[in-house]
Simulated scan of single mutants.
Amino acid sequence: MRRLANAVIAGVTVVALCSGAWLLRSGTASHAPPQPSAAQAHSRSSGSSGTSSGWGDDGSAAAALPASPPVRIRVPSLRVDAPLMGLGLTPTGSLDVPPAERKNLAGWYEAGTTPGERGTAIVAGHVDNADGAAVFYRLGALRRGATIEVDRWDGGTALFTVDAVEVYDARDFPDEKVYGAAPRPELRVITCGGGYSRATGYRGNVVVFAHLTGSRVASLTGSRDSNRAD
């Protein structure tokens, strides 16, 4: 059911997140967000291992965590530290989005997999709003091997390692590759990207592919103990 729910939003996330209000007001020259380079793309053929992202169990993946809603996402290398809200579908069937005026707020698709649980979890956020850069403005600058931390309602933190950062045109968005089911805990972080048109806004999406490589659990003293895959 969660795989079906993920597939439902495959064709609408691009539209919902990509108005580009800041660039529309200010022009593209000085405010265009960074875009991923070819060096950050997948290094293996997608689907070669039977997973949505193209990676099999190479020993780096940590064991799946129990389901628990996420409450916060951090990307230390980009200085992202933002609360997460649950996202559903609008009456027209498109993915809802965080309020544009709250630029440091991201959302997760709460009808799907929770981050750290087995399967593909989805986090999305704006690249900008009418006033300037938003939570995922620098997502395209993320590099393979970077860490993404997701705090969960159960008090633990799921630790993900970035496998690839890619940009897709809306007309060629690879639904199954991004939203498809995975046999291990994986994460997708999505925002606007690609070319920009003053008439239509951003033409595509930046997508980060990551998988679970560890976790932290809150101790009785309030400190955290690491549990990473070897």
Rank of each mutant, 00 (worst) to 15 (best):
127 V>G: 03
58 D>I: 09
77 S>M: 11
103 K>V: 09
54 G>V: 05
117 E>W: 02
85 M>Q: 15
63 A>M: 07
43 S>A: 13
64 A>C: 06
151 D>H: 08
137 Y>P: 00
89 L>R: 14
99 P>Y: 11
120 T>L: 03
119 G>C: 09
67 A>Y: 07
123 V>S: 05
59 G>W: 04
151 D>Y: 06
118 R>A: 13
133 A>N: 10
97 V>C: 13
137 Y>G: 00
126 H>G: 01
138 R>N: 14
78 L>I: 10
113 T>W: 03
114 T>V: 10
138 R>H: 11
138 R>D: 14
103 K>N: 14
121 A>L: 03
95 L>S: 10
121 A>I: 01
125 G>W: 00
100 A>Y: 04
72 R>Q: 12
87 L>F: 09
116 G>D: 03
128 D>L: 01
62 A>K: 04
47 G>Q: 11
124 A>E: 06
131 D>N: 14
129 N>K: 06
86 G>C: 09
94 S>Q: 15
148 I>W: 01
86 G>H: 07
99 P>N: 08
89 L>Q: 13
69 P>G: 07
153 W>I: 11
97 V>T: 15
58 D>F: 07
135 V>E: 00
108 W>V: 09
66 P>W: 05
119 G>K: 02
45 S>H: 12
58 D>Q: 10
67 A>P: 02
102 R>C: 08
138 R>T: 03
85 M>P: 05
68 S>P: 05
130 A>M: 06
108 W>S: 04
98 P>D: 09
64 A>K: 11
81 D>T: 08
154 D>P: 10
147 T>F: 04
143 R>F: 04
73 I>H: 00
71 V>E: 10
100 A>V: 14
77 S>D: 14
57 D>Y: 07
154 D>I: 07
68 S>R: 02
144 R>P: 04
72 R>G: 00
46 S>D: 10
60 S>A: 14
134 A>E: 00
146 A>T: 05
147 T>A: 11
